[in-house]
């Protein structure tokens, strides 16, 4: 186990040499680094308080998972740290709150957190009630199968109603795959965490596990050749940073912070240290959506 992770980390390091640089122009509003923010802005308020409340997941390997230390670790957590740094707030002043998928909009609307970084797919329904900065990563849903299984090649393989698939309760991937199922009651299994799905795949109770490709890549890496990804990704999930609706200045500030991190390598490092460890594909830097 541990040796595979080291191997994966080395692989990721090698990848770090092939940086793809895209992304936007120079950010003029990127005021990070110094502590002067426009009076009355959210940035000034947070900077003065020297505290930022971040909603993230505590059970998503690679993105936000509480480690044995009791602190959340992962790519989402690193992105939150980048934002905090730009606000001149030290890392230990970040207050993490667990935000499972069900409550993400709610906690923003009720001002329980300042930002939500929690594998949060940008979509129109959510945009109606909150704002998104980013995207900072484009994931896509994929399918994990046993390494010797050639019968599943993509989501269409589930249409005949025999293959069984596992995902996580109340998640977007679970909703997405339902469209491809012949008979939901005979084909779909839902658990609270992906680990349980992977156990069911190992035991042969299900034939496949589906969720975003990066999460599945993690399981491919930690299970030493037992699993593989079947086919290509079949959805596009742009992860954004959730903000309270209508705070345009804060949104611009975070977008600028992200673009700066895309360029100065901080973003790449954050990825390589966390979710990127298990992902052998090239890291594509997304284009910020400023609409």
């Amino acid at each position: 186990m541990r040796t595979t992770r080291i191997a994966a980390a080395i692989g990721a390091l090698a990848l770090a040499l092939t940086v793809t640089a895209c992304g936007g122009d120079d950010s003029e509003g990127g005021s990070s680094g110094n502590a002067s923010f426009a009076a009355g802005s959210t940035m000034e308020k947070l900077n003065k308080a020297q505290k930022i409340r971040v909603g993230t997941k505590f059970d998503q390997p690679g993105f936000g998972l509480k480690g044995l230390s009791g602190k959340p670790e992962g790519f989402d957590v690193e992105i939150a740290k980048l934002v905090a740094k730009a606000l001149d707030i030290p890392e230990d002043k970040i207050e993490y709150q667990e935000t499972p998928s069900t409550v993400r909009e709610q906690v923003l609307q009720q001002d329980k957190v300042d930002i939500v970084v929690a594998t949060y797919t940008i979509n129109d329904k959510r945009k109606a009630v909150i704002d998104f900065a980013g995207p900072y990563y484009i994931a896509g849903q994929s399918i994990l199968v046993k390494a010797d299984d050639a019968s599943i090649t993509g989501p269409d393989s589930f249409k005949d109603g025999t293959k069984k698939v596992c995902s996580v309760t109340n998640s977007t991937p679970a909703t997405n795959i339902e469209k491809y199922l012949g008979d939901k009651t005979k084909q779909l299994v839902l658990f609270d965490i992906y680990q349980k799905c992977v156990d069911a795949l190992k035991g042969g109770q299900v034939d496949a596990v589906t969720t975003d490709n990066v999460i599945l890549a993690g399981f491919v890496a930690t299970n030493e050749g037992a699993f593989k990804l079947a086919g290509q990704t079949f959805t596009e999930e742009p992860y954004g940073i959730g903000l309270k609706k209508g705070d345009a200045a804060f949104k611009t500030f975070i977008n600028d912070t992200l673009e700066k991190a895309f360029q100065d390598g901080a973003y790449k490092k954050a990825w390589d240290d966390t979710a990127g460890k298990n992902d052998t594909s090239e890291l594509k830097i997304p284009t910020i959506d400023r609409s």
Binding site: C166, T169, K184, T185, L188, V189, L190, F191, D192, K196, A200
Partner: peptide, 10 residues
């Protein structure tokens, strides 16, 4: 919560 899909609560 343990893999039975379609029961009343879930």
């Amino acid at each position: 919560f343990f893999g039975v899909v379609g029961d009343l609560s879930n």
